[in-house]
Design a protein around this nucleic acid. Structure first.
Lengths: 195, 195
DNA sequence: AGAAATGTGGAGGGCGCCTCCGTTTAAATA
DNA sequence: TATTTAAACGGAGGCGCCCTCCACATTTCT
């Protein structure tokens, strides 16, 4: 129906546009890392040496900017799942992946918004990122269930939500330890009864 | 050291002050219920037919207002703990209390801020509410551990954080079911190994 | 080079947070 | 009751963030 060659007028994307987009993402990474999410978008624009208007043309909303930033890291996380399932037994694979998820959260210190954007929110629905993340953990858990290692009564994403809760709501520096303990607790709870 | 009769100059608190405080709390309940937390404080003041300055004198911060609102409900929750420990076996007592915690969350639909204020945040440190909540769940878990029903590797508050994560980050209407399943999963994970 | 499309920048409107301080009003005192 | 005292009031206004809009600049295409 819509053959590529005819549907859209061909036009090379402007060089400055792409350059600025890249600068913005880099600037946002830096600023958010320093000041936590919730830092002013104006500041991001300043850091990128770009007008605020430019920022808003490239990224309609704060969420759009955030997902753009973390898309790459999340893709890495998602891609890691199949590899882990090959290399490890189902349970260790799941555990390892959850640990990597914690690593990911660690770099986003305190960015509650990021989390809800990714696993709760409505925004990720556009990008489909949320679904991919869901697929990854669903695959890991299904794998473990098939092998008889787990019983699972809940939506796999809820595991991430629980971990996220611990990560977000634990004040201070030691949330990581709590998160890891939570992972082991959850895994133990899912372990199939031996009766 | 500080006998009541001498330490403070006696002065009846002004009637209008107390009245306005009450009006503000009531107004805040209403407005937050309608518009979710994050509603403008100015609107709360308007609803209470009071100047914005008055609101800020009674409640230094948004958090202070929020904790004042929910203080009562939380007290109820906290008070329920000892009773449950008397009436039920340790494990069912803990479970029941966690379910009541979910009920509490239910009335705060989507108020992520409330949660972090209560179990994560810095604000509750002033009021001590956070500590009381912590004491309640610590008592419940300690009770179960003493009776040999549980092994516990984590800070009891983390249980609430995990549940809170599920509650906050699950979109739609069905988070309650998820939260309950999470409770059972956590309990199972904490169950002492029978080896 | 000239036309057309695309991108830029930042002023400015809107909004919510919170402070400050001149005025009002209740409680204590005479 | 009249006066004094200090607690409480209220809302204008400063601040900072969000986002839109559009006259102007730059790039690509012909």
């Amino acid at each position: 129906m819509t053959p590529d060659s005819f549907t859209k007028p061909p036009r090379k994307p402007r060089a400055d546009g792409e350059r600025n987009r890249a600068r913005l993402i880099e600037a946002a990474r830096k600023v958010f890392a320093e000041k936590g999410a919730g830092a002013g978008l104006e500041q991001v624009a300043r850091e990128a040496e770009v007008g605020i208007g430019t920022l808003y043309r490239h990224f309609r909303s704060r969420d759009a900017l955030i997902t753009s930033i973390y898309q790459q890291e999340i893709d890495t996380l998602i891609d890691a799942a199949p590899a882990l399932m090959n290399e490890l037994e189902p349970l260790p694979a799941l555990r390892e992946w959850l640990l990597q998820f914690v690593d990911f959260l660690e770099t986003k210190q305190g960015m509650a918004d990021v989390l809800s954007t990714l696993i709760g929110g409505t925004a990720a629905l556009y990008s489909g990122t949320s679904e991919c993340l869901a697929h990854a953990i669903e695959a890991l858990t299904a794998n473990a269930v098939d092998e008889g290692a787990l019983d699972l009564d809940l939506e796999p994403l809820d595991l991430l939500r629980a971990i996220g809760g611990v990560a977000n709501l634990t004040p201070g520096e030691n949330w990581r330890q709590s998160a890891v303990q939570m992972i082991d607790l959850l895994l133990k709870g899912m372990q199939r009864d031996s009766d």
